[in-house]
Amino acid sequence: MSCEFKISQEFEKKVDETITHYPVSKRSASLPLLHLWQEEFGYVSNQGVEWIAAKLDLQPINVFELVTFYPMFRDKLAGKIQFRVCRTLSCALAGGYELFDHLKKSCQIEGDGHHGPAVSADGKYSIEFVECLASCGTGPVLMINDDFHENVSNDKANELVKKYG
């Protein structure tokens, strides 16, 4: 295993505590551990897959299957500022696609962002379409990193970009 990432004691402690939430089957901790890994290292590398598999007495394929099934897990870095724009109907009716195009242009991001994040050349921004974020009454909805923003007009988007940038 190539060791791109150093596992801190603190990280391992968090992982071990999380595993205790699943007294019946350690395997249940797969998703939580993937979240922890991605929060810590930015994306799930093969090292992550193998480390988690070993931790949970699984085969790497068991974890790899998950990384590629659940869209929130990435196998490469997203931007430092990560936009997730809701693509689904209510937001689309409210201008979700226009918001997506606007952000792409103003942050100079290439790529379509339909399947996984498209990252700007400098790695600062990334954008991705996601499906309904359960806030359809206040579309278009935009997530920037872990924060939620509703009724995001292009003007509001410009302000937000400034604020995060």
């Binding site: 689904t88 109907l89 209510s90 499906e131 309904c132 359960a134 806030s135 359809c136 009454g137």
Partner: peptide, 11 residues
């Protein structure tokens, strides 16, 4: 898991 498009109550 509230993900059904158009639904935003559980949140």
């Amino acid at each position: 898991d509230e993900s059904e498009p158009g639904t935003f109550k559980d949140r």
